[in-house]
C-alpha cells in the first residue's frame, strides 16, 4: 500500500461516522492530513530492476540509436533512457496497471485502439528477444548490441517497416512503444530516472518546473535565460561531495 492510500484510510477513520473502508464521510470541514497525499517517488541509480543484463545491453544500444549522442547533447544511453524504461516496466506501467484487461480479446479496426493481451513488460521482454533473434539470424549470430551503429540503424528500420517478423509479438508494435517511451525518458522529470542532469530540457531550452513566468509573459521574442529546475531541484544547489 502506498502512502497515499494509507493516508486516505487514516483520513477516513478520522472523519467518518460509518466505516466505509477508504470511502469517507466528509462533513463540516475539508479533510486534511499534514503530508502530501501522493508525494512522488524518486528513481535512483543502481542495478537493473526489470531488464536482464543482456536485455539492458540491447536497450542501452537501442536508446542510443533512437536518440543518438551529438557533440552538444548526450544520447539516450547517457541521458538514462534505458534506466527510465527499466523503472517504468518494473512499476505500474509495465504491469498495465489501471488499464481495462477483461476479455474477450478480439482484433478490431485500428480506430478501436490497442487490444493486445500483452502487458508492456511482456511486450518488451518478447520484443527484445525477437530483435536479438532477428539480428543473430542475419548477422552471423551477433545480437543487436554487438552490431555496428550502422547495422543497428538498418535493423531498427526493418523492424519499423514491419520487414522483421518476430515470434509471438508484433515487432512494429514493439517499435511504436520504443518511439513513445524513449523520448519520454529523455524529456520527463529526472526523478523518473531519465533526462539525467536535465540534458533533454537543456537541449531545447525548457526551464522545467519553475512554475512562475509572470515577469516574463510580456517579454516577447526574448529567449528565457534561466537554467531548468527539476522536481528534485538542480545539481548545483547541492555541494559536489554530497551529490546523489
Amino acid at each position: 500500500m502506498r502512502r497515499r492510500s494509507f493516508l486516505l484510510s487514516l483520513a477516513a477513520s478520522l472523519v467518518s461516522t460509518t466505516s466505509l473502508s477508504r470511502a469517507a464521510l466528509i462533513h463540516d470541514r475539508v479533510p486534511w492530513a499534514p503530508h502530501p497525499n501522493s508525494a512522488p517517488e524518486m528513481e535512483r541509480l543502481g542495478p537493473w530492476q526489470f531488464f536482464t543484463a543482456d536485455e539492458a545491453r540491447a536497450m542501452e544500444a537501442i536508446v542510443d540509436r533512437i536518440i543518438p549522442p551529438d557533440p552538444e547533447t548526450p544520447g539516450g544511453k547517457e541521458a538514462g533512457c534505458a534506466v527510465f524504461i527499466d523503472r517504468q516496466l518494473k512499476g505500474g506501467y509495465g504491469a498495465n496497471e489501471g488499464l481495462y484487461t477483461l476479455g474477450p480479446y478480439i482484433k478490431g479496426a485500428k480506430e478501436q485502439g490497442p487490444q493486445s493481451q500483452l502487458s508492456h513488460a511482456e511486450l518488451y521482454r518478447k520484443g527484445l528477444a525477437g530483435l536479438d533473434t532477428f539480428c543473430r539470424s542475419s548477422h552471423g549470430g551477433k545480437p543487436f548490441a554487438e552490431l555496428s551503429t550502422d547495422e543497428q540503424d538498418a535493423a531498427l528500420k526493418k523492424v519499423e517497416a514491419g520487414e522483421a517478423k518476430f515470434d509471438g509479438v508484433d515487432g512494429q508494435g514493439f517499435f511504436s512503444a520504443l518511439l513513445k517511451d524513449v523520448p519520454e525518458g529523455f524529456f520527463s522529470d529526472p526523478i523518473h530516472g531519465g533526462n539525467r542532469d536535465m540534458v533533454g530540457w537543456k537541449m531545447i531550452g525548457f526551464p522545467g518546473i519553475r512554475y512562475d513566468y509572470r515577469d516574463w509573459v510580456k517579454r516577447h521574442n526574448e529567449r528565457y535565460p534561466y537554467p531548468p529546475v527539476s522536481i528534485a531541484g538542480r545539481a548545483d544547489w547541492t555541494p559536489k561531495n554530497r551529490e546523489r
Binding site: 492530513a33 497525499n37 520527463s188 522529470d189 526523478i191 522545467g208 518546473i209 522536481i231
Partner: peptide, 13 residues
C-alpha cells in the same frame, strides 16, 4: 495543498 502542490504538480509523465 495535498494533491497537487507546486513542488511536484508539474510532472508531465
Amino acid at each position: 495543498a495535498t494533491d497537487f502542490p507546486p513542488g511536484y504538480a508539474a510532472d508531465e509523465l
